[in-house]
Structures are given as C-alpha cells and as structure tokens.
C-alpha cells in the first residue's frame, strides 16, 4: 500500500450529522481484500469483465448471478434515467423474500445523506467510472462504517441508466476519515 496515493478525503459536518469519505482508485479493490473475495471484489471483477466499451451494457451486467443471498443484501442499484437526480429510483431486491423495493432519492429523509448520495451518483454518471470509497457516517444518530463501490452501466445508446452500489460493512465507527490501508 505504501506509495499508493489516496484520491480524495472529504469530511462534512452538518448539524448533528457527519460524513467522512476517502475515495480510492478502484485498482486498489483487489489489494484491499483481506481474507477471500468480498462482495465488492466480486461485483467489481464482474463489472470489468462485462465492459463493452468503457462500461457494461445494462442487462449483461448482473452481479446477482454469482452472489449468494447474504451477499445480495449488500447490493442495490439506482436507476439514473431521469433528468432530475432527485427522481432517481433506488432499487433493492431480496431474492430471499422475493421482493423488490423502489424508493425515490428525494424520499430519503436525511438531507445530508440525500445530498451526498445524489452527488456521488452524479459523479459516477458524469465520469462513467467506478467510485470506490471508504465511508464513516453518522446520520440521525445512526453510525455506519463501510466500503462501497458504485458501478455505472449503460443502455445501447451509451447513456448511463443504472448505477450499482455494493457495500461491505466493516470495523467500528470512530469519526475520522476512514483509511482502508490500515484495516
């Protein structure tokens, strides 16, 4: 890890909410694997394999196929076809319960969470590149620490129509920028 630059560190405090995020090159996903392939590694590897041009075509990228039911809980996607990002649809599917839940981005209650997720999705859509992050968050008194990768896919016209989000809960919450290299 030594010598590999982190791409960005962000910290935001808004009222009682806090957000700390370190962005890394997706090339480091493999190096951040500690014991066996995680869901992030598997989803990213499949994404790379299915690339057609710069990113995979929607329909050909289907990480559900090789993830077990527990791992599928760590996966969701966001439909990004709409012009207004507040109308993006967050879709999570439970194979176990055979249910699919749709939730508009604007219906997320926490304003900081809504704003951050919106701009992470917009970044992924605009740059058409995976966004790999280590995140510490405290929203509405609820703490979480996790790694996440956002993976864009496109339609046949090249437009980014979906962004897959795969996360992996880790560690304990300590309110400092998460350094994946130390885990």
């Amino acid at each position: 890890m030594i010598g590999k630059p982190k791409e960005a560190h962000i910290s935001i405090k808004s009222g009682d909410d806090e957000w700390y995020c370190s962005s890394y090159s997706p090339d480091l996903i493999a190096e951040h694997e500690c014991a066996g392939p995680t869901v992030i590694f598997k989803a990213y590897r499949h994404w790379r394999e299915q690339r057609d041009g710069d990113i995979p075509i929607d329909g050909r990228y289907n990480p559900h196929i090789f993830l077990d039911q527990d791992e599928q809980r760590q996966l969701l996607h966001v439909e990004t076809k709409r012009a207004n990002p507040q109308n993006y649809l967050i879709v999570s599917h439970s194979a176990e319960a055979q249910t699919t839940v749709h939730c508009a981005l604007q219906s997320l209650l926490n304003p900081l969470h809504r704003r951050i997720l919106q701009f992470d999705l917009l970044e992924c859509k605009e740059t058409r590149k995976p966004l790999y992050q280590g995140i510490n968050q405290l929203f509405d008194g609820v703490e979480a620490t996790y790694r996440r990768v956002l993976l864009p896919v496109r339609d046949i016209n090249g437009l980014v129509t979906k962004v897959y989000s795969v996360y992996d809960l880790i560690g304990s919450f300590n309110m400092t920028p998460l350094d994946l290299e130390s885990i």
Partner: peptide
Amino acid sequence: MDLTTEVCA
C-alpha cells in the same frame, strides 16, 4: 451551518 473539507490530488 455546514462545514466541508476535501483534500485530493
């Protein structure tokens, strides 16, 4: 009010 810091390359 909001306080944001970011450091990148």
